[in-house]
Design a binder for these strands. Structure first.
Lengths: 330, 330
DNA sequence: CTGAAAGCGCTTACAG
DNA sequence: CTGAAAGCGCTTACAG
């Protein structure tokens, strides 16, 4: 059912119906407007976004490109983004890129062909050439969770480096000297930042760093076991993400290492079960909801004014949630 | 940059460019096609989905309406859906409804105004009037995770009832007679099914059911404490979701009840940290990835043939992941 | 093999 | 206050 249908049924022109639909009532007689509204309700007319869009109107659609769909992080973030977008009358077009740079470029083109009004993106560890052009044209883009050093793009990130540094310093304060950092994918911006934070803290304390890489469960077990059996094994572990922090647990158990007595542990990224573990886990909590909220806010500001020349970068502080795995009384 | 731009630049008509773009090369000279392709690449032409859509072509967009964005369940499901949709050349338009029936109706209209080709929906506990009309017109809809009894709509669900029944029977086999079921939101289809499964098992064993409602953490603590202090307290607990299963833990600890010796526990919905809890939790695992995959598959089949009269309902079996909290040696 | 015309459903000027 | 015309970027017939 189109404008034309309503117009015919109401005995007026499409223009009149259009005016009524858009609430430009001042320019239409009360009676006409009333009548048209009735016909609209009867026929169940819904304006066609596609037609509006073709004319050049905004599609009221934003793209959400995600490098990964990781667990709680993603669901909280997506919820917030969806909710705020809805409140502003926008829809969210989803596009997973699976940490793949080529997929990212092609998904970007796809989103653009759908004429999104703006883009929220958790970047892959790639070169992001596609962004250059869009950015140059003033197309609204906000990077979230990860940023690009080489481009001037608005971004909202977590203080990964500082959070990791604080976690490491907390372990240092407990008297630990041999603190190892367990990580998996250092190509990802946020992970590399966390590693840097750990390194900063260790260097500031005049200590050697000990980077333990574990790609998957088995690899984590292997790498960690080897470190544990070395001459000066770590007495504390900092894990750059919560999955890793969990995978550490059985390895320590196998080596008869009690947390926190024989091994202190802090994980980056809090998770619902953290307080319920045998040794409730101390974690670095990320303000996920706020991350999504600020990103949406920034994007809408950019959409409203495409001509701002400034670039905004918002870094959100983390919070060390002290439980018992770090050695605190809890 | 439009078809017209390319046509002008290439010195041909828009029609010729259109034919080349769509790969109808047989109807264009090799040379012309080659030349046009070069210009397309130079200008970076991308076909406009919006214009295509207005003409009546499919938008190659599917809607994904979600009643909730719950944790791992959602992220795994969304990942699968997005991935399969992408493979088929489709995009996903997201719309959260927050368990709110009115929001659901308005979001549906919004999606329709964007001319989605089909809809994947995790329904709210409402009446879903909006679906009636769409369904009657043969619009492709697949309900996932929750279904509607009152409408003939394709659906992919989890065997909630059977899974809950099996979990309860497992506790029964461990010799428990007083098994309580902890739940929160019984209005949600999947939860009510799980409760029914519990009830079936209890009734089949000739035992009394004991339904414990806990809306939030505190309420869970209160309700559970009361049950624990009663004359014949439960010796086993079945929790209808994993958040509840976690919230139970500190309450039992407060009452000095060890799992599984003094209290057996099984939770519905597995989660990453389940194996790492003090008493590794036995859970009912849901085939989440398969849920999303089957739903997408069903939807695409419906999109390809809108005129099938049959209604498909796929119920996916759960798996009891036996760890130690149920009383098994593990 | 190639192109001019018409139309998808709207809205922006421009007339009455 | 109301309406006829033109155009957004494509593609489906229909001509040459």
């Amino acid at each position: 059912v189109t404008l034309e249908d309503v117009a015919r049924e109401a005995g007026v022109s499409a223009m009149t119906v259009s005016r009524v639909v858009r609430g430009m009532d001042k320019r239409v007689t009360q009676e006409t407007a009333h009548h048209v509204r009735k016909v609209i309700a009867e026929l169940g007319y819904q304006p066609d976004m596609v037609a509006k869009s073709l004319r050049g109107d905004p599609t009221r659609t934003i793209g959400l490109m995600l490098a990964s769909f990781g667990g709680y992080f993603f669901s909280n973030c997506a919820r917030t983004i969806d909710e705020l977008a809805q409140n502003a009358g926008y829809s969210v077009l989803l596009a997973g890129t699976h940490e793949n740079s080529d997929a990212e470029a092609s998904q970007f083109n796809m989103l653009m062909s759908h004429r999104i009004d703006g883009l929220l993106v958790v970047l892959t560890p790639g070169r992001h050439e596609f962004l250059k052009h869009a950015l140059a044209e003033g197309f609204p883009v906000v990077a979230l969770e990860r940023e690009v050093a080489s481009m001037a793009v608005d971004s909202v990130v977590i203080e990964n480096r500082l959070g990791a540094r604080q976690a490491t310093e907390h372990l240092l304060q407990h008297g630990h000297r041999r603190i190892a950092c367990v990580y998996n994918e250092s190509r990802i911006y946020s992970v590399s930042e966390r590693i840097k934070g750990y390194e900063e803290a260790m260097k500031a304390a005049g200590l050697e760093t000990n980077l333990l890489r574990g790609q998957d469960v088995e690899h984590v077990g292997h790498t960690l076991s080897k470190a544990l059996l070395s001459n000066d094994p770590p007495t504390a572990l900092f894990a750059t993400n919560s999955v890793l922090a969990l995978q550490i647990l059985p390895v320590l158990e196998k080596h008869n290492l009690k947390i926190p007595e024989s091994m202190a542990v802090i994980g980056f990224d809090d998770f619902p079960a953290a307080p319920y573990l045998p040794s409730p886990m101390t974690t670095v909590r990320q303000p996920i909801t706020e991350l999504g909220a600020r990103a949406v806010e920034l994007l809408f500001r950019k959409i409203a004014d495409r001509h701002t020349k400034s670039t905004t970068r918002i870094a959100l502080a983390t919070e060390l949630i002290v439980r018992r795995s770090c050695g605190c009384a809890g």
